[in-house]
Design a protein around this nucleic acid. Structure first.
Length: 103
DNA sequence: AAACTGACTAATA
DNA sequence: CTATTAGCCAGTT
């Protein structure tokens, strides 16, 4: 490891404060990779659990938790966020207006 | 080396 | 609101 854009992405995700969320596109921009929102998702999917990363604070542009191939991490993500006082509406969406992190 | 694979987004209809 | 389309590119096979 130590190579690739993933490191830059992880570095930005680590900056998201507790109780706030960031979108994939936002992380991409902050990491100096504008337009590479997808890469951010892929980076997180490949995140080794050997590093500490608040991956749960990253959601899609709609304020929803993105579904992965193997479903279950989504539930965990929601629990982790709710533990940080992040509120989900009845449709499982977060109000970005209130919770999105402004860098 | 070439093909495959995705935690996305914004624009348009 | 849903559906479709086109950009996006590193890592893995």
């Amino acid at each position: 490891m130590g190579t690739g854009s993933y490191q830059r992405i992880y570095a930005q995700v680590k900056r998201v404060p507790r109780g706030r969320v960031a979108t994939y596109g936002q992380i991409a921009r902050l990491a100096g990779l504008p337009g590479q929102a997808r890469q951010v998702g892929y980076a997180l999917a490949a995140t080794p659990d050997t590093i500490t990363l608040p991956w749960h604070r990253v959601v899609n542009a709609k304020g929803e938790i993105s579904a992965r191939v193997e479903s279950h991490g989504e539930i965990r993500q929601r629990v982790l966020l709710e533990r940080e006082k992040v509120v989900f509406d009845s449709k499982g969406r977060i109000s970005l207006r209130r919770f999105q992190w402004k860098a």
